[in-house]
Write a protein that binds this DNA or RNA. Structure first.
Length: 573
DNA sequence: GCCGTTTTCGGCCCGACTGTTTTCAGTCG
């Protein structure tokens, strides 16, 4: 059972307990435990299998949860979940996703009217039954009806790259308002999460009313959800909620800290403040009534003797441990990357010539680019056979002579065949600079079989890196099933690298997988699998996730110059 | 249910906004 599956079960327990009106701190304990397991760098199963280690060593997992998780892994069942589901139909949880309906109101609907589906809820609102309940009235009933359709897509999240476009438009719009002195985007967007739920903006302004009026005039606004003196929320026509807070200058840093989150990070921070007799809120850090920090974000953290965490690290994962141990990792930056190591040209299914790709990479400030067209098995993409590949490499040699301060690497994305083995012979692979091995066919094979094929490829002395390690970039809806722990171990044992293939809408390795790669000592290559020159700029999305995974320049292989990189892979080739 | 410079019990982050109250509960982030 994967960590994500275990975490989902614990989350479900928390949801049902919340609906039941259980002790809120008990509910939070389940949620904390779920998050701790979800964020773990290695499978829970391998911790359980190791007699030297215990689940209770994980922050947030106590004796009770450790036992429950162990039972769950062993038997596939969680007793408390089974008991809860006997009392409460799982479908009630859909009601909790209606904006404005929390556990108390949802429980009242279930208890008093027997409502446990969205359809029943709609009918009850339309027939005026809901307004008869204590705590509900006509306005609530109307709001529920208006929000009921949102519930079904409440979990919808937006890719960071799409959110970024909207954020840039909103920032430009806010800057048109004369009252706005400063405007910043916060929230999960600022933390660089792969997907973003809603957008948060903070404004420093002398006239809050003017800013809100201006906000309300944004083209593409759907409806205003709420508006107070300092806070306003709208929903855009595209379905994304946008929150705005107008804050005073002396509180701007505290507000940035607060609204950047994550919530879990803030809970830890506030706990630490409380232990020191301080109080933190979105207005500042206070000792009694005296404000001791708040105008800038670094000052808020400094008041607690903490470093100003890069937003990407603020997830209550390892960052507080790192700070306590004396320092945060120096996270990789886009400018550290020397080149992309996975792209396609017109020789197979790319849209641009080798020369065009090289020019685009050089314009990005890179010093090398590996051309890795497909091998012959990928016939649909015009994959190259041995002769074609050798001719391409001769061509690359010729082009390289014309390039100054830039080098094209003779590469290939060689297919890991359905029956095992590679699509090109070792004698040819030996002549290349950079060999990436990827699975494209046989993606429906069993987890064991695909893992076996990949591990075998990682043992080939000519292979430098594994492309598409999770298959997420190949097939968003249904990535192939693979035992990543086995892949990490095989890569570490054979001195191979793992690719973080980045694309605006999806990545092969996400932030947690990056953290895992680091845990197992496997260097990551941040590459794009670009088929067109514009695709090369997707490296920034890979960098964001690598930063969230805590990766430094050293953890990423293509921060090295080509001679350094060659040395790094050379030993095993 | 977890945890410990608050240490095996008694805490557990904090405030804005709304709708329903007639002084506050519920929801949200």
């Amino acid at each position: 059972m994967t960590n994500a599956e275990i975490a989902a079960r614990l989350e479900l327990v928390a949801d049902l307990l919340e609906f039941q009106g259980a002790n809120p701190f008990r509910i939070r304990a389940y949620r904390n435990g779920a998050r701790a397991i979800h964020d773990l760098a290695e499978p829970v199963e391998s911790v359980l299998a190791d007699p030297e280690r215990h689940l209770t060593d994980i922050q947030g997992i106590g004796k009770d949860l450790a036992q429950k998780v162990a039972d769950l892994v062993e038997t596939g069942r969680l007793a408390i979940l089974d008991e809860l589901l006997e009392e409460i139909p799982e479908s009630v949880l859909a009601i909790l996703r209606v904006p404005g309906l929390g556990p108390k109101k949802a429980a009242a609907l279930f208890r008093e009217l027997g409502i446990h589906t969205l359809d029943q809820l709609r009918v009850a609102c339309e027939t005026g039954q809901v307004r008869t309940l204590k705590g509900f009235a006509a306005k609530t009933e109307k709001a529920i009806l208006e929000n009921i359709d949102i519930a079904s897509e409440a979990d919808k999240r937006t890719y960071w790259a799409i959110a970024d476009e909207i954020v840039q438009k909103l920032l430009a719009h806010f800057r048109e308002c004369e009252s706005v002195e400063r405007i910043e985007a916060a929230g999960s967007y600022r933390r660089g999460k792969e997907t973003v739920g809603d957008l948060d903006f903070l404004a420093l302004a002398d006239d809050a009313t003017a800013v809100m009026d201006h906000f309300a005039a944004f083209p593409g606004i759907g409806k205003t959800l709420l508006r107070g003196d300092t806070k306003m929320s709208i929903r855009l026509e595209v379905g994304i909620q946008v929150d705005l807070r107008v804050v005073p200058a002396e509180s701007f840093g505290a507000a940035m800290q607060y609204f950047t989150g994550s919530q879990a990070h803030n809970v830890v921070l506030r706990g630490m403040a409380k232990a020191r007799g301080l109080k933190i809120n979105e207005y500042g850090v206070f000792r009694g009534d005296e404000q001791i920090a708040g105008d800038d974000e670094a000052g808020v953290y400094a008041a607690l003797d903490l470093p100003c965490f890069p937003p990407e690290l603020r997830e209550a994962r390892r960052e507080f441990d790192w700070a306590a141990a004396g320092g945060l990792p120096e996270l990789i930056e886009l400018k550290d990357l020397c080149g992309d190591l996975h792209c396609h040209s017109t020789w197979s299914d790319g849209m641009n010539t080798i020369e065009e790709m090289a020019a685009a990479a050089k314009a990005l400030g890179h010093s090398y680019l590996a051309i890795t067209d497909h091998s012959k098995r990928v016939a649909m993409a015009g994959g190259l056979d041995e002769d074609q590949l050798l001719r391409q490499w001769e061509e690359i040699d010729r082009i390289n002579e014309t390039l100054k301060g830039f080098r094209l690497l003779k590469g290939v994305e060689v297919d890991i065949l359905e029956g095992g083995g590679l699509d090109l012979g070792d004698d040819v692979l030996a002549q290349g600079d950079w060999i990436v091995a990827s699975v494209h066919y046989g993606q429906n094979q069993s987890r064991e079989r695909i893992t076996q094929r990949v591990v075998e490829a990682l043992e080939n002395p000519h292979v430098c890196a594994l492309g598409h390690p999770t298959g997420r970039l190949l097939n968003r809806r249904k990535p192939y099933e693979i035992d990543m722990e086995a892949v990490f171990r095989a890569a570490a044992d054979n001195g191979k690298l793992l690719e973080l293939n980045a694309h605006p809408k999806r990545l092969d390795l996400d932030d947690l997988a990056c953290a895992s790669a680091k845990h197992y000592g496997v260097p990551v290559v941040i590459s794009t699998d670009a088929h067109i020159i514009e695709g090369l700029s997707a490296l920034r999305y890979g960098v964001l996730q690598a930063r969230r995974g805590g990766l430094t320049k050293d953890d990423v292989a293509n921060t090295r110059t080509w001679p350094q990189l060659k040395k790094m892979i050379g030993g095993k080739r």
